[in-house]
């Protein structure tokens, strides 16, 4: 049994890694101009055509790296929220956390751009974090009063709508020149990401992920419920605060750079758990990261190639692939309950 499991983990991780490499290549290869593998090799070797090199190094590579890092972060953030609320339909998007971050980021952008200042990556992240924490605080307030998860999700969706409405309102009054950017971003997109962005987001996300991974033990204790976690020596209060902080940081960073992205946080952890046949954090945290990365790279590929040169918002694509997974999951759960 133990050996069976190890084998399964090994195979699953290998599959995810291969998938990631394939998607990485394909994402660099296809776009408004298709490249050959030879072109790519040449660029990486420092040779090749200057235009090709520009497209790959300045546009496609940072974009695919962003999809990788942010997609992974988003799905880990979802996994943490699901653990926190003890429910698989919790996620940064449905709980309104992404929308909260979106609101504060738009405000920050308009204020800064309006005064003719550039918006740095750090500013984006901090403002997104403030928004995420505001939504999170509200959700926690509600969750103290309503115990039913479905009600909590409805509240989250409502918060999402309110934040989006205010964002739209603000965007309407923004300068024309900003609207285009803001509009693209607020729909969710990996476009226009610079190397500086990639660097900053990677630093923040990988530090957060390392902290999260170090919390594998209390997370797995917490999966048995508060009583038993406490009995195993977990400081529940501190643990809950940490969990909230980590998941909020992750989803805030994602929103800061790519806008709100739906369903990744719910669908990916679910698929990954089924794939690995376990919910153990020590396995699932890294697996969720890889899975989320692959999922977002795949969705971004579709978003920018299917109707090229017109780009679709990333959220539309993640919804098309993610929502059915979530529906299937909820139907299964209901059937389990009725059985």
């Amino acid at each position: 049994m133990k050996r069976d499991r190890r084998l399964r983990y090994g195979i699953a991780f290998t599959v995810l890694a291969i998938l990631l490499i394939i998607l990485l290549t394909v994402n660099i290869k296809y776009g408004s101009v298709d490249m050959t593998v030879k072109d790519i090799m040449e660029v990486f070797a420092g040779k090749g055509d200057i235009t090709v090199s520009r497209i790959i190094m300045d546009i496609r590579l940072p974009r695919v790296m962003a999809a990788l890092v942010l997609g992974g972060a988003l799905s880990v953030s979802g996994y943490l929220l699901q653990t926190f609320f003890g429910n698989p339909i919790a996620g940064p998007f449905v709980l309104g956390i992404s929308s909260g971050a979106k609101l504060t980021v738009s405000v920050a952008m308009i204020v800064f751009l309006g005064q003719g200042m550039a918006v740095s990556s750090a500013t984006l992240i901090i403002s997104a974090f403030v928004g995420a924490m505001l939504s999170m605080g509200f959700i926690l307030l509600v969750s103290g009063r309503v115990k039913k998860m479905s009600m909590l999700v409805i509240c989250g969706v409502m918060i999402g709508y309110i934040c989006s409405a205010i964002t739209d309102f603000i965007v309407t009054f923004a300068d024309d020149s900003n609207i285009v950017n803001l509009h693209n971003w607020s729909m969710g997109s990996f476009s226009g990401i610079s190397w500086e962005n990639v660097k900053t987001m990677s630093i923040v996300i990988f530090i957060t992920l390392a902290c999260t991974f170090m919390m594998s033990k209390p997370i797995s204790a917490y999966q048995l419920g508060e009583t038993y976690a406490k009995n195993m020596g977990v400081n529940i209060k501190r643990f809950r605060i940490l969990l909230i902080l980590l998941s909020s940081i992750l989803s805030a960073v994602v929103t800061a750079f790519a806008g709100p992205i739906s369903f990744v946080g719910i669908a990916v952890p679910h698929l990954i758990k089924r794939m690995f046949k376990t919910a153990k954090p020590i396995i699932i945290i890294p697996a969720c990261f890889l899975g989320g990365a692959a999922f977002c790279m795949f969705c971004d590929l579709i978003a920018r190639t299917v109707f090229a040169p017109t780009e679709m918002s990333i959220s539309s694509i993640t919804a098309i692939f993610g929502a059915p997974v979530v529906i299937k999951m909820m139907v299964n759960r209901q059937e389990d309950k009725n059985a």
């Binding site: 204790a221 048995l224 758990k273 376990t278 919910a279």
Partner: peptide, 19 residues
């Protein structure tokens, strides 16, 4: 309290006692 576990075998549950 009724435990609600996800994809945990009985051995996994017992394992937590060693944490």
């Amino acid at each position: 309290d009724r435990l609600k576990t996800e994809l945990m075998t009985c051995r996994d549950v017992v394992n937590t006692g060693r944490y």
